[in-house]
Every structure is written in C-alpha cells, then in structure tokens.
C-alpha cells in the first residue's frame, strides 16, 4: 500500500508575504532615508508602469488636435466625453468588442475543458502507451509559434476554416503548457479523497466531475485568464485568417481604425482605453489568484 502523506492542495496565496528580515528595526536617520528612498523608487516605477495607460485614458478626453498639440499638455483644457460617446456609437466597434468577447469566452471554456481532462488523465489514470502520449503532448510545448504559424495558415485554409469563428477558437485551445500546469496541480490532490469514491463504485469520470472539477478553481482562474487574455489580445492570427468585418477582432479593429481614420486620435485613444478595459477588470478581480499562480507555475 503506497503510504501517501496527506497534503493539502497547494495554497495559492499572494507572493511576497515572507517574513521580512531587517528594515523596520533600523531606526533613526538612516531608517528614514531608506524609507524615503524606497518611497521614491516605488513611485517612479509605478508611474513608469502606468503612465502610458493613464495618458491613453486622458487623451481620450481631448479634442482631435489636442492629442498631439504643441506645447505638450497632459490634461485637456476642456474634458470632453465625445470621443467615448462616438466610439460607443460606432456599430463596428461594438460588434468587434462583442465578437471578440464571445470568442474569448468560447476559447476559454474549450481550453479549460480540453486541457483539464487531459491533465486529469495524465495525473490519475493508468493506461497503455501513457508515456508515449505524454512525450507526444509535451513536445508540442517547445515548438515556437513562428515555426508553425505559416503552415497553420495553410492547414486551416485546407480545412476551409478561414473567416469563421472556428479558426480563431480551435487552433490555440489545446495547450501542452496549460495541461502541464493543471497536471501539477492535480498530482497534489490527496489520493484519500478519491479512494472513498472508488470504493463506492464511482467511475473515473465521476471522480473527475465531482471531486476534481470543484477543486480546480484556483488553476482554472489562472489558465482561464491566460487563455482569455491571449484571445483578446491576439492580432497576427486574426489579420491572417479573418477578412470579413463582421468577425473583426478588437485588436484588428483598432489597427484598422488607426490606418483608416488617422486623424481621429482622440477617438482612437478612447477606443483603445475601452478595448483594454475588459481584461483590466478581469485582472483586477482575479489578481490575487493570478499573481499567486506565478508561484506554482512550475519554475522549480
């Protein structure tokens, strides 16, 4: 009988909460100086990280010529909401946002389903040719995108998938990296949990469905967010495979807007801000899981 040490599933807690060594103990002038130095550095880096986005948001409130006005001015003279109103009234913008959102949801759900099923099978089931299949799946993780980008296009052309939602959703959904990440998580689930179910005659599918799926929330958040983000931000694959405006992806819409309506800089900034909003909101909702997820991403 394999004696398994009962362990809890990896706690996905925020990084950076380790006990701190010194710092606070150093009193006096030196401590104040170090504190001030840290504060300055923190402010500078946060400003650098967020400045381009803050500027984008604010430029959305500027008039067409104000965006690139000389002398440069960070804030508009008059805060206008027209750009945001106009872009929200553009049916193509709304359609691109909706189509991309719907596609991203489908992609995320498919990616979670396909990869977690595979991860469970590799983590918990015994079957013939397991090692061969494992090597087959994992090898795909090391193939750089560009090596297959061109022939992937040839393949989807042959499958007559061009200019459909399927060409956006299907090709990237299966991911060896995601499968690997989820398998690591499932390996840490204590065997004791399913032994009772096995004795009660539960099938492997039932164990996956009723024991593993409900426990998957932390990995699902990380993999789901990564998938959603990849779909939402993708640009090169859509411009290769999508030609009808009905299916234009949001990044594609923005790039097209930029070349077709080059003078409308305020609207472009407003559109970019709104296009970044869904992923920003998702990130802020799940940030604790995502930042924590980096810790279990299998670096060691």
């Amino acid at each position: 009988m394999a004696a398994q040490t009962p362990v809890t599933a990896p706690a996905i807690s925020a990084i950076g909460q380790a006990p701190r060594s010194s710092g606070r103990s150093e009193g006096g002038l030196k401590g104040v100086l170090i504190g001030a130095g840290k504060a300055v550095m923190a402010t500078v880096i946060v400003l650098l990280a967020l400045f381009p986005l803050a500027w984008m948001l604010i430029a959305g409130f500027k008039s067409r010529s104000e965006v690139v006005e000389t002398p440069f001015q960070f804030f508009p003279d008059v805060w206008r909401v027209e750009n945001y109103q106009l872009i929200l009234q553009d049916p193509e913008f709304i359609r691109s946002m909706s189509v991309t959102f719907a596609g991203a949801i489908m992609f995320t759900v498919l990616s979670l389903a396909v990869n977690s099923l595979g991860a469970y099978a590799f983590a918990r089931l015994e079957f013939a040719f397991k090692n061969v299949l494992w090597v087959y799946v994992i090898t795909t993780m090391f193939i750089p995108g560009m090596a297959i980008l061109l022939t992937s296009f040839v393949v989807v052309t042959r499958l007559r998938m061009l200019d459909t939602l399927a060409v956006l959703v299907l090709p990237g959904a299966a991911s060896a990296a995601h499968l690997f990440f989820m398998r690591q998580y499932y390996l840490n689930v204590p065997l004791a949990m399913e032994e009772a179910a096995t004795l009660d005659g539960a099938s492997k599918w039932e164990i996956y469905r009723h024991i593993f799926l409900p426990m998957s929330k932390p990995v699902f958040v990380v993999v789901g967010m990564t998938s959603f983000l990849a779909f939402w931000n993708s640009y090169v694959w859509p411009i290769m495979t999508i030609t009808s405006r009905d299916l234009y992806q949001i990044q594609q819409y923005l790039a097209t807007f930029r070349s077709e309506r080059a003078a409308e800089l305020g609207m472009l900034m407003a559109g970019s801000t709104l296009a970044a909003l869904p992923v920003l909101i998702l990130f802020l909702i799940f940030q604790r899981h995502i930042i924590g997820g980096i810790k279990i991403a299998g670096l060691k």
């Binding site: 946060v46 931000n233 970044a276 995502i290």
Partner: peptide, 13 residues
Amino acid sequence: VSIYIPTIISGVI
C-alpha cells in the same frame, strides 16, 4: 498589481 498591469495590455494598444 501596478507592475503587472502592462503585461495584460495588447501589443496593438
């Protein structure tokens, strides 16, 4: 959170 935010912004934006 601040330092991670640029990571979620698309290359196009």
